[in-house]
Design a protein around this nucleic acid. Structure first.
Length: 105
DNA sequence: CGCGTGACGTCTC
DNA sequence: CGAGACGCCACGC
């Protein structure tokens, strides 16, 4: 539980600026390919003092978090654009260019 | 110990 | 190509 959450936080904290990870991707990195939901849950429960770049975590289609998170999806988009994260123009992150592959690091 | 729930994912229609 | 249904896993009650 906290171990799982901690792992999620660890990966999120490692995401370089300008790159993004998907929930499912993180879940796989943790050895739980079907725990994408739990990943999102972990971020939901992520304490602010960890200062995690949770705005760099998107869904499989590059979609941003719901409005209720971040105090507005526009906020997340603004942060991403501020890091030169490419958008597709439809409000989604261009995963083809911004998706981070930790295995390559 | 069982039930409901959710920042997701994949398959179908 | 958009919307809906089901599946998954951890957690709180």
């Amino acid at each position: 539980m906290e171990h799982f959450f901690n792992q999620v936080y660890a990966w999120v904290a490692r995401i370089p600026a300008g790159k993004v990870l998907t929930y499912g991707q993180i879940a796989r990195l943790l050895g739980r390919p079907r725990s994408a939901r739990v990943v999102g849950w972990a971020l939901r429960a992520a304490p602010d003092h960890l200062k995690l770049p949770c705005h760099r975590v998107v869904d499989r289609q590059g979609g941003l978090a719901p409005e209720e998170a971040f105090g507005g999806a526009w906020r997340q988009r603004m942060l991403l654009e501020g890091e030169d994260v490419p958008f597709q123009g439809n409000g989604r992150v261009d995963l083809n260019a911004a998706n981070w592959h930790p295995e390559q690091e």
